[in-house]
Design a protein around this nucleic acid. Sequence first.
DNA 1: TGCTGTAGTTACCCGAAGGTGAGAAATGGC
DNA 2: GCCATTTCTCACCTTCGGGTAACTACAGCA
Lengths: 144, 144
Amino acid sequence: MANPLQTRFAAADIAQAEQYLAHEPPTDIDPRIERLVNELIGRIADKWTLLVLEELEAKGTLRFTEIGRLVEGISQKMLTQTLRQMERDGLLTRTVHAVVPPRVDYALTPLGNSLSAAFCGVWVWAERNLETVENARTTFDARD
Amino acid sequence: MANPLQTRFAAADIAQAEQYLAHEPPTDIDPRIERLVNELIGRIADKWTLLVLEELEAKGTLRFTEIGRLVEGISQKMLTQTLRQMERDGLLTRTVHAVVPPRVDYALTPLGNSLSAAFCGVWVWAERNLETVENARTTFDARD
DNA sequence: TGCTGTAGTTACCCGAAGGTGAGAAATGGC
DNA sequence: GCCATTTCTCACCTTCGGGTAACTACAGCA
């Protein structure tokens, strides 16, 4: 398996994402979209959301403590907070089973799955340009 | 112009991005890519990088103070910091003209342009799902 | 002589993000 | 009776991102 992204994204998605790298987009855009994109990226980048999204995407349905184990380093507080926000945004469903001890299942909604897929272009970019970025940094740090 | 994204991205990019929304990707991935993606998203989400990227993409070459005016609310400190990081990653070039008062030009590299393009999928997702997310939030906030 | 403008750097300070650890509720098992 | 388990919430405290404002260097200009 030469290309690790092939284990993650559909071939057609990858093929298309490559085409992103050949164009140059212009000008202004609807401020509501702009705000949502910024907010989304801000949320995704809160360090935990993306990781939770990935685990749920890979594993399907998971319990609270299972996610906690899979997402290494996350505190209970941040796990709860992250899951609540994602639920609020409609990215996942939270199912409480009325048993003792409590059992709560989390699973991505189609919306959650599609958000993950929307980041395919970024994954492809990162794979293609990993070395370019690393070289740029080395060069930059060594100058003078 | 019904679709504001059409002013920003090429038609083919948008068409493909729509296809992202129909698949479900699996399993694990090269940790180096993983790290770069997380770092990238973290950097993009530092609130300023994405905005600087957009302005440079839209306007081409800009001076320090021009970017400062265009990116509303950014402080000198953060502008400098953001530009330095982007330069280090090879996303833009910094050209110093030895004149008085100083003149410094910033412009995206092809790498910088392609990063912006890589986020096309996210923009398309946001446009398609803006109302879904807003409705989900309203419903969530109103429950109980 | 001193004021202006550009592109920064530096020191200081504040608020918020996030980690830690305790508690809570409910019930089956020893 | 007491402990363990699970999914949280709450209070406390620390860290750090980022804002503000002052300072620099240099030349033209009034």
